[in-house]
Design a protein around this nucleic acid. Sequence first.
DNA 1: TCTATTCCTTGGATCGATCCAAACCGGTTG
DNA 2: CAACCGGTTTGGATCGATCCAAGGAATAGA
Lengths: 347, 347
Amino acid sequence: MTDSSGSAAGRSASTRATLGSVAAMAGVSKQTVSNVINSPQMVREDTAAKVLAAIEVLGYRPNRAGAQLRTRRSRVLGLRVQNRFADAVFDRFLHALTDAAGALDYRLMLYTAADDTAEIKAYDELIDRWDIDGFVLTGTHPGDERTSYLSRTGVPCVTFGRPWDDSGHHPWVDVDGAGGTRAATEHLISQGHRRIGFLGWPDSSGVGGDRLAGWAAALTAADLPLLEPSRAVNDAGQGRSAAAELLDAAGPTAIVCASDVLALGAMSEIAFRGKKVGEDIAVIGFDDTDIAEVSGLTSLAQPLVDVAAHSARLIAALLESGSAGPPEQVLLAPELVIRPSSSTPPH
Amino acid sequence: MTDSSGSAAGRSASTRATLGSVAAMAGVSKQTVSNVINSPQMVREDTAAKVLAAIEVLGYRPNRAGAQLRTRRSRVLGLRVQNRFADAVFDRFLHALTDAAGALDYRLMLYTAADDTAEIKAYDELIDRWDIDGFVLTGTHPGDERTSYLSRTGVPCVTFGRPWDDSGHHPWVDVDGAGGTRAATEHLISQGHRRIGFLGWPDSSGVGGDRLAGWAAALTAADLPLLEPSRAVNDAGQGRSAAAELLDAAGPTAIVCASDVLALGAMSEIAFRGKKVGEDIAVIGFDDTDIAEVSGLTSLAQPLVDVAAHSARLIAALLESGSAGPPEQVLLAPELVIRPSSSTPPH
DNA sequence: TCTATTCCTTGGATCGATCCAAACCGGTTG
DNA sequence: CAACCGGTTTGGATCGATCCAAGGAATAGA
C-alpha cells in the first residue's frame, strides 16, 4: 500500500480498497469504518479522523454489491422507456430525473415493455433478479393496473401523472393540464378573441380530458360559446384534417390544442388556406417542444425539472422512511410561453 | 405453476427462493444447482431435471447481487445522458439500446455529466461503487479523451461515433455521414440541379466535416461548382441567417444541410422570400426527425436500431470473451427518405 | 472503592451467489 | 485387485458490506 493512488486510474483491478483494508490501515474494526460512513454520530471524533484519513489515502469507495446483498437495497430505480416513437416530453423528463435521482444518490435503470401487461410481468424479474428498489411510472391512464399491482406486492413507486380512477395510494406528481389550457384560453380572451375552438385527442378521459376541461372552464366563466371540439390522434397530419373540420364548422378566431404536434397540424392548415397564424387565427399548443420554439407557437411548458425533482424526492422518502401518513401528491402549474402565434388581437 | 407463491406477487419478501432452497428441495448441493444454470453440460440429465423442477416450483430467479459480489460482473452498462437540451437522435438511440442490451441480458444505467472532464471523473465512481461493466459512449469528437482514459484503465467501452483522431483501440459503430450527404447530393443532381449549396456547422472536423465531405465529393465527381458552404450552430434561427447568406452569395437551386434543424431554418428563409421549398429551391436535411416528417423535408434517416444492436453486440462480446483480435468497427449507411422538399426538378 | 450508566468499539455471523479443491463413482486397465 | 480415469457432485471458503450482541473504557453516583 505504499502506492497512494487508490483510484481506478492508478491501480490494477486486484488492489481495490475495501472496508477491511481501510480498517486495517486505521487500526480499527470494519464496523467502526462502516459507522464513520453510515452513522457518524456514534463514533468519537478522533477515531473518525483516523478513519477518514485512511479512506482518503486508499481512495476507498464503498461497494454497492456488498451492501446490497446485506441490506436488500440497491439504490436503483426502474424506469420504463417506451419502444414506440420518441416523445419529447418523456425524454426531457428522463434527463431531468437522472439528475434529480443522482443528487439523492439513486441511479436509474431502464427497461422496455411493449404494453402495461408486459411491464407488470417484468416487475417480478426486475425486483428479484436486479434488486430494483422502486419504480417511477409515467403515462398513467384510467384503468391503469400497474400501480395497483405494485402496491399489492408492496413495491414502492411514484407516478408522473395522477391516478385517473381512484385516488390512489401512492405518491404522484403531475402537471395541471386543465390549469394550463385555462390560462391559455384566458390569455386569448384577454386578447379579444371570442370564438375559441379546441383541438384535442379522441380519448376524453385522462390527460386529454383534463386539458379540454380547462378550455371549457375558461369559456364558461367568460360566458363565451363552447364550440364543438375537434379530435385527432397525436399526429400532425391527422391534426391538420381535424383543424380543417373545426375551421369549417365553427369559424373560430383562435384554437387551443392539446399538444404542439396537433398545433403544428393546425398551423399548416391555416397556412394552406392562405391565412396567417397569429394575425388571422391564433394557435396555442401544449408541451413547449422544439416545434413551438421554431415556429413561434405559444405553448404551455411543463416544469419537467420540478416534476423530476419531486418524483425523486417522493420515492426516496418512501424508500428511506417508509410511508408515514398519506402519500404526498404534487400538482404543478405549466407556464404559458407567449410567442407570435397568439400575440395579435383578432380583426 | 399451480402455485404462484414463488413469484413476487404471491409471497412476502422473506420467502424468496435462493440457490440453497432450490438445492434443498432437489436434494443436491448448491453447486449443482449453480451448474444447472451456468454450465448445464456438466450435470447429468436426470439430476438437471430434478433441479429444474425445483426451480420451477419455487419460482427461483438467480439474484444478481450475490453473483456480482463474487464475479465482479454486474451486467450493467453505463450511458451518459446530456443535461443540455434533448436531442432526438440520442433519445431514439437510447430507446433502441435499452431494447438491444436487454435482449442480451444487459441493463442500462444512466448518469449525467456536464462535460467530458466531469464524465471522466464519474467513471471511477461508477466502476468502483456501482460495478458497471462497461460504457456506451456517444458524441465522439476530435480530441476526445474519454476513450483513451477508459482504455488506459482497462474498462471496456463501445462508441456510437468513430474516433476522429487516431484509429482507436476500441470497437465502434457509426453512421456514414459522408455517404449520406453524397447520396443526397447525387439525388439532387439526378433531379437536374447544378448549383447545390451546403449549410453546415461551424466545426468542420468530426461529424460536420464528414457530412460536408460527402456533398463536396458528389459535386467534384459530377464536375459541378463547389459553392462556398455556409455555417451556423445547430439552431433554426442561426440556420435561417446562414441560409440567407448562402442564397444571396451563391444563388443555389438546392441546399444540403447538416441537420434537420438547420434545414428548418433554411426552409423558413425560403418561405420568407416568397419562394416555395421544393418547387423553387430544394432542401435536404439530416436525421429524419419529426421536423422532417411534418414539413415534407427530404432527410437522411440514421439506422439507430441497427446502431444500437451492433453497439450492444460489440460490448457484450468484449465483456464475455475479452478482446480477441482487433476491435470490430461498423459503419452503417443512412437511408435517404425522399419527400416533397426535393422531388421537383428546378426550373 | 465499587457498581451503574453511557458511549464507543469489536468479533463473528450473514446476505446469495461463485470458485476451488477434494471426494465420489461406475467402468476400465495393468 | 489396486491403480486409474473422466464425468459428476460436494463442502467450504470467499466476495464486501451490514446486523447483532457482547466487550471495554470512561464518567457519574453511592
